[in-house]
Design a protein around this nucleic acid. Structure first.
Lengths: 216, 216
DNA sequence: GTAACCGTAATTGTATCCAATACTCCGAAC
DNA sequence: GTTCGGAGTATTGGATACAATTACGGTTAC
């Protein structure tokens, strides 16, 4: 009955599932997230549900005004701009530290992810896109910075889903990734950072232009 | 008995208190934070205590391996370096956006905080130092970026306490603040960012040099 | 149409219980 | 003396039930 065999972490599972569904848009912006309902859905008690909601609220995927229901955070162009600015500086710093530290193995890994993205459908594209960024940044050896970048990536992924589907942005992104990878191979950190910053800016402005007419 | 009159948020109070005590060093690094003990101390149940611990864990002030007791996060020179790097880029971005947006009122506020810091003792110094940074950055109008900077500030404050007390760093910091403020008044964002970056780097390297011999 | 009101429902917090895991301490083997 | 292992305790993760407060929605009165 109440004999959950201490799997790993109930909270972690609930958090991961909700996060995916929010990012994928299955749970639309402003959808209410009621504790009882979620507890029933995941066959858990309210405690792990509340912890999940708190985590997601701190990540920014959920708004949780005290006393009211938690809700999926709304999509806000101003927020996308801010997130993109933050990604730009954070990824640029990470890449600058990463390029001199990249091993041949790291480069090969990035290359293979990049190759896989060429033939991916739009559902896989987001994941491969993230993975590529992670791959070229990870050698910087800054766990906190990388965690920060990953969170920002998840936030922007919500907006990105729209672009890939509606704008067919994948080919352009793939092309920009090629050039960044080449700069990494040439160990040209400055050039790589410049390209990465432009890559993020370009995606952001394209998205903003596409998103602004969508009023909430 | 169990009639807590819905003050506001029990969790928020517990979190704030613990955070202060961790930053101030009252709770030393690696000190265990047991749920029962904290619940008894704050006359609350374990639920708000757990939520507080989770918040602090996500902020980085507490480590909480699943299944074991939460502990005050250890002081780690590598982490200080990383946090300083992140503060540098984040505050630089914020300042660059803030300088053109600063009103005379904003400048006056920063000036008054700066003046107050001159005559502050070392206990007040940390708070005024934070407040000054917040004051010159807030006009950038980027809530998420500012929240990120505030978190980083709290993390570095733990390390800073050592420096102010042991190194007498306050006068130097005050001098650097003067020059940053002057650049803001002159609306020279580039110069202000350069000075701010140097300010953070200088504090970081001084702290690192002082901290490295202190092995855990 | 708007404002006040009331009943329902949702949230916050408490108390208590259970199972599984982590920790501690002490004795035995080397 | 040091290390290894096991029993017993402490602590955590989670469930459940309950109390109290507060938001929400619909109805009614004006």
């Amino acid at each position: 009955m109440h004999k959950r065999p201490r799997n790993g972490s109930t909270t972690a599972q609930i958090t991961a599932t909700l996060r995916e569904e929010i990012i994928a848009g299955i749970l639309p912006p402003k959808a209410p997230l009621r504790q009882q309902a979620l507890a029933a859905r995941f066959q858990a008690s309210r405690m792990p549900v509340r912890e999940s909601l708190q985590i997601l609220a701190r990540e920014g995927l959920v708004t949780w005004p005290t006393g009211r229901s938690a809700r999926v955070a709304p999509l806000d162009p101003a927020e996308l701009r801010e997130i993109s600015e933050m990604r730009m500086i954070a990824e640029s710093l990470a890449l600058r530290l990463s390029v001199p530290a990249m091993s041949d193995h790291d480069l090969a890994h990035a290359r293979s992810l990049h190759a896989a993205a060429r033939e991916a459908d739009s559902r896989q594209f987001a994941a491969l896109n993230s993975a590529f960024h992670q791959a070229i940044l990870a050698p910087c050896n800054r766990p906190r910075l990388l965690a920060h970048i990953e969170e920002l990536g998840k936030l922007s992924q919500r907006y990105l889903m729209v672009a890939v589907n509606d704008l067919g942005y994948a080919p352009r992104s793939h092309d920009e990734h090629s050039r960044i990878l080449a700069a990494c191979k040439a160990r040209d950190a400055d050039q790589a950072c410049r390209l990465l910053e432009r890559h993020i800016t370009a995606a952001s402005t394209a998205l903003l232009a596409h998103l602004t007419p969508l009023a909430d």
